[in-house]
Structure formats: C-alpha cells, structure tokens
C-alpha cells in the first residue's frame, strides 16, 4: 500500500486546480434551471477575469486579453466585414420573383430584430434561428434555399445584425413548456460533453481553458459567443455564420461533425444565447 502511495502523478495535481466544482443540480428536465445556469456561468467568469465588465464579453477573447485587443482594435478601425454588410443590405432589399421580400417575412420589416433569435417556436416544437428563417422566407416565396455557412446567407444575417446593434438579448423559455426546456437542456448537455477522438467538450476550451494558450491561440470565453456572429474570421478570409464555426469546432474535437442548422446545433445556440442574456447584439464581428 505504501508503494501505491509513493507512486504518483504530478500532472493531474496541477491540472486539478482548474477543476470547477461538480454539479449538484440542473442536469435533468426536472431540475435544470436556465437562470441558475446563466448566473453561475457569469459568476465563473467574474471570478476568473475580475477586471472584465460583463458587457465587454461580447468582444470575445478581446474582453480578457489586452495584447490581442490592441491588434483587434486596429482591425476594427477598418472593419473587414464592411463590404459584407453593404452587400447584405443590397441582397436583403432585392425583391423575390413574386414581388415580395425578406421584409415581408419578419417582424418590423426585419430591422432591429437580431436579439430575438434564436427563439422557441411552440407550434413547430423546435428552436428557430435567424438563418433558418431567412431560408424559410425564401422557400415560402418560391426561391431556392441558400447554403448555410457563408456567402449570401451570412451577408444577409450580417446586415440584420448590423441594424440590431446595441439591442439586448433576452431569450426566453416559455414557463412550463417541457419541450422548450428539453431543447435548452440538450444544448447545455452538448456544450459540456466530451466528444471526438480528442475527447474535448466546448467547455474544455471555452470555460476551463478560456484565455489560456493552445499553441499561439487563446481560447475565448463562452459568454458572449453568439453576440457577434456572423463573423469575418481572418483564418477564413471571409464572413461565416455561427453554425459554420460550430461545425468547425465540432470537427476540431475529431468528431464527424453535425450538419449546420441541425436540431442539436440549434439547441446549442439556444443554450449559448440564453447564457448571454443581458448582453447586446454587436454582430457582425471580426475575429482571428
């Protein structure tokens, strides 16, 4: 027995300082409390980055790392997504063959409404995202659906976000709607589950590992993740949607990734956006 005690592992001890306390509630449909989750996650970051204001989390890694913030502010002085917003506005205003347009499909003519997405659609019993409704608008007017990841759909989404800048996210889960709560829980579970050959959860990098280097890259905090999409990503050299990023991240865990706008990815967006309730829309954004 003595020998066993002497045989030991150092790495795990050092790593264990990063371990956050185990959950005692909120893992089942009966016990999950989105509001308790949101407060706990926000408190986690408050403790981890005491000098960062809550509202600043919409700026991702630049909210917590001063060095990369300076570089990013230089980029934002001449935003790389400027052309995309203009193109998005142009596309948004082109009438469909039947004479109707996007403005006819959305509340308030589609202007200043980004903060209402994603939302729980009771009739359809599913989470609806902005990109999904852009395509549904097209299809219901006899147009072909756009591809989910980049190009026109990202540009239209970027323009719609642009017109909503500064509006506050307030995602709600209808009281007593077990199906809506189940969708939220599915998103939460996806976020915290380790998966893929590399055995990584979203939380591994973006909660435990936030602002710690993976090679030369710093993992962003999860809070505010959805506020600034679509994003012009230097690595892509173009604009892309949130679900394009989800798919890439999922694949980076060496998983066979889910499809963009699949039910689970929409549930993930639902969970993540709920976590960011109280933060503002600041999309489109630019990121490394």
């Amino acid at each position: 027995m003595k020998i066993i005690k002497n045989l030991a592992l150092g790495v795990s001890f050092i790593m264990s300082t990063q371990l956050v306390s185990a959950a005692s509630t909120g893992t089942t449909l009966e016990t999950v409390s989105p509001e308790a989750d949101r407060i706990a996650l926000q408190n986690f970051y408050k403790k981890r980055f005491p000098n960062t204001e809550l509202q600043d989390y919409v700026n991702g890694i630049y909210a917590v790392d001063a060095d990369s913030r300076t570089q990013w502010e230089d980029i934002e002085a001449f935003p790389p997504y400027e052309f995309d917003v203009e193109e998005g506005e142009r596309l948004f205003n082109i009438a469909f063959a039947n004479g109707k347009g996007y403005a006819d499909c959305f509340e308030n003519g589609g202007i200043g409404i980004r903060q209402n997405f994603p939302y729980w659609n009771k009739e359809e019993g599913t989470v609806k995202t902005l990109e999904q409704e852009i395509n549904e608008c097209r299809e219901s007017n006899g147009e072909k659906a756009l591809k989910w990841g980049k190009g026109p759909i990202a540009q239209i989404s970027a323009y719609m976000a642009w017109t909503s800048r500064g509006k506050v996210f307030d995602i709600s889960i209808p009281d007593g709607d077990k199906k809506a709560l189940a969708a939220y829980l599915d998103g939460k579970k996806f976020f915290y589950s380790k998966r893929g050959q590399l055995n990584l959860s979203c939380a591994n990098c973006h909660v435990q590992g936030s602002n710690i280097r993976i090679r030369a890259d710093l993992a962003s905090p999860a809070l505010g993740h959805t506020s600034h999409f679509p994003v012009f990503r230097s690595k892509w050299g173009e604009l892309g949607t949130l679900h394009r990023r989800y798919k890439g991240c999922h694949q980076d865990s060496r998983s066979n990734p889910l499809d963009m706008q699949s039910e689970t990815f929409r549930n993930l967006e639902f969970f993540q956006t709920y976590m960011s309730n109280g933060l503002v829309v600041n999309g489109p954004g630019s990121r490394k």
Binding site: S21, A23, K189, N204
Partner: peptide
C-alpha cells in the same frame, strides 16, 4: 464508451 460516459458525467464541468 465515450458516449455512455458522457451520458452519466457530462455535468462534471458545469460551473455552480
């Protein structure tokens, strides 16, 4: 195995 483990233990890293 990883899936079965995640089903039981996914909550381990949820901040409280």
């Amino acid at each position: 195995q990883q899936h079965a483990y995640a089903e039981q233990n996914w909550q381990l890293s949820v901040p409280q």
